[in-house]
């Protein structure tokens, strides 16, 4: 964590051409690959289970609020754009601007957490628990693990917000790595949402 919070210039992009390394810290991409493997396994397992009981899964899917899921998608995309803007500002050494973008990005993450918590509460109130249908086991596992990522991302980004306020000098690789994590959280949701809420 402390290594991630350091801001070194190593590996920083140079202009518009191709770069020699992946964005952020190279080692972090091992974590990204592992995370993607885990989610891929969950996606495929869900799809196979759904194929065994399409009617039951469809009935359970209809109990979810796709409108709320769509709004959450827009919230996460906006938050991701804020973090991309924060990185652009940081590369220009506009630290104050970068911190404002980071706060806006974390705000988006917080809105997502609140909306998701309200969704869970409404679901449990309506009796949509894992013991009522297998669908809810997958729903709670996929969205729960993803929600954990959102919370971790918010904490990480807030750490950078504080860090940049105290020591604004330095490079951008640490923040670039945190941004990769935040965008990972974003694009995972772009697959979780249609899989659970939209696919009939």
């Amino acid at each position: 964590m402390s290594a991630l919070m350091e801001r070194s210039d190593q590996g920083a992009p140079a202009g518009k051409g191709s770069r020699r390394t992946m964005p952020g810290m190279d080692g972090f991409w091992v974590f990204v690959a592992g995370d993607l493997a885990m989610f891929t396994l969950m996606f495929v397992t869900f799809a196979l289970a759904r194929a065994d009981d399409p009617a039951g899964f469809e009935a359970a899917r209809l109990t979810l609020d796709a409108d709320r899921g769509g709004i959450n998608t827009l919230v996460l995309l906006t938050s991701s754009a804020c973090i991309a803007s924060a990185l652009t500002a940081l590369r220009r050494d506009a630290v104050g601007q970068a911190r404002r973008w980071i706060l806006a990005g974390v705000g988006g993450g917080a809105v997502f957490v609140v909306l998701k918590s309200l969704e869970y509460a409404a679901g449990f109130d309506a009796g949509h628990a894992p013991d009522t249908h297998e669908f809810y086991v997958y729903y709670l596992t996929l969205t729960g693990v993803h929600l954990g990522h959102v919370v971790a991302g918010c904490v990480l980004l807030l750490g950078f917000w504080v860090r940049l306020g105290r020591r604004p000098e330095g490079g951008v690789v640490g923040f670039e790595t945190a941004a990769v994590f935040w965008h990972l959280v974003d694009f995972l949701w772009l697959l979780i949402f249609p899989l659970l809420y939209l696919a009939r």
Partner: peptide, 24 residues
């Protein structure tokens, strides 16, 4: 259609926000 759009969106986040467009 939903998953074609989802794939395009995921790739767009990767190329533009994560900047994989400039990666090896």
């Amino acid at each position: 259609a939903i998953f074609v759009v989802a794939a395009w969106k995921v790739r767009l986040v990767m190329t533009d926000f994560i900047e994989l467009r400039r990666a090896p």
